[in-house]
Design a protein around this nucleic acid. Structure first.
Length: 298
DNA sequence: CGTTGAACCTGTTTGC
DNA sequence: TGCAAACAGGTTCAAC
């Protein structure tokens, strides 16, 4: 569910609804996705949520200090594939897979729900936070064209793998990687370092445009993403590649194809997005029968 | 360095 | 209808 636009949408919503509220009590269910469950119970009650930010695909709940305790302690929340975080009336029955409940001082409860528990929750003291955040790459909305080109040049991985690599760029996931590549007309299997400066420039622009457009429409709701008010996003209506296997390309009518790239389903137009010349080094055991090179087929 | 596949866990959709 | 397989917005790790 959650990539940069969805997390941004949720962070903005929570900033409006829970920022300034004090956490009265913490109730935990299953905790295998929490770094240190006891720390939540120990340090959160009594603290107020100063503000809610997005960092890559993480939500960062900045905690206000009590009296003289260190400022800047934070709760890091990653939604994984199926995570949800939203306020509910405290009296409302919890839905299935609700694993964390933060009772607030206004009669509401901020609840974390996650069927698959691929998400992550962790309390970080201010001193430890920079090291944790430092593991991630540039924010795709802030990276400059020049930095982006340099990043591509430094990697010999496929462009799709690079876009998904959170240590290179933080926040891009499967949907927006495919949408950006489609808009920039770049095949997901292209080697990043082989993109021309013009292609890199186009991809940089496409990526930022798409993320901004998606944020403006409050993200993509494929099956279940809901913002802090329980509303679905609208950007799924604008998808041009993701999830459109066998449907006509919006530019050229060629049928969109699906292939596994970087271990993920990847959707692209085989006509608009030309494959790399030598898709893969030929397998060693294959007979070298290619006196004439055949056109790459994918 | 990079890639692939499996694992983590549950739910939903698809195919026979 | 029933059951199994495939698939899902993510991340991590072993093996190659």
């Amino acid at each position: 569910m959650p990539e940069l636009p969805e997390v941004e949408t949720l962070a903005r919503g929570l900033q409006q609804t829970v920022a300034g509220r004090r956490i009265v009590a913490v109730t935990l269910g299953k905790t295998d996705f929490i770094d240190d469950p006891a720390a939540l119970e120990q340090f959160l009650p009594g603290r107020a949520i100063e503000r809610v930010e997005r960092f890559g695909k993480f939500m960062l709940l900045r905690l206000r200090t009590g009296v003289d305790s260190a400022a800047g302690d934070s709760l890091l929340v990653h939604l994984g594939m199926t995570g949800h975080l939203s306020p509910h009336p405290a009296a409302e029955p919890s839905s299935k897979h609700t694993h964390v409940r933060f009772l607030l001082d206004n009669g509401r409860e901020l609840r974390y729900t996650d069927a698959r528990r691929f998400g992550r929750m962790a309390y970080f003291a201010a001193e430890q936070l920079p090291a944790e955040l430092g593991r991630f790459g540039a924010d795709p909305l802030e990276i400059t064209e020049f930095e982006f080109f340099a990043l591509l040049k430094s990697r010999k991985s496929r462009i799709k793998a690079l876009l998904l690599d959170q240590s290179a760029l933080r926040g891009v996931g499967n949907i927006y990687a495919d949408e950006s590549l489609w808009r920039a007309r770049i095949h997901p299997k292209r080697v990043a370092a082989n993109l021309s400066s013009q292609e890199a420039k186009k991809l940089h622009k496409s990526l930022q445009q798409i993320l901004r457009e998606a944020i403006a429409l409050r993200g993509s709701s494929i099956s279940d993403f809901l913002d802090a008010e329980g509303e679905p996003g609208e950007y799924q209506r604008h998808h041009r590649a993701y999830g459109r296997e066998a449907e006509p390309c919006y530019r050229c009518k060629t049928l969109i194809r699906r292939a596994i790239v970087a271990g993920r389903s990847s959707y692209f137009c085989p006509n608009c997005q030309r494959p790399p010349r030598l898709p893969r080094p030929a397998a060693r055991h294959r007979r070298r029968v290619t006196h004439k090179r055949r056109a790459a087929s994918q």
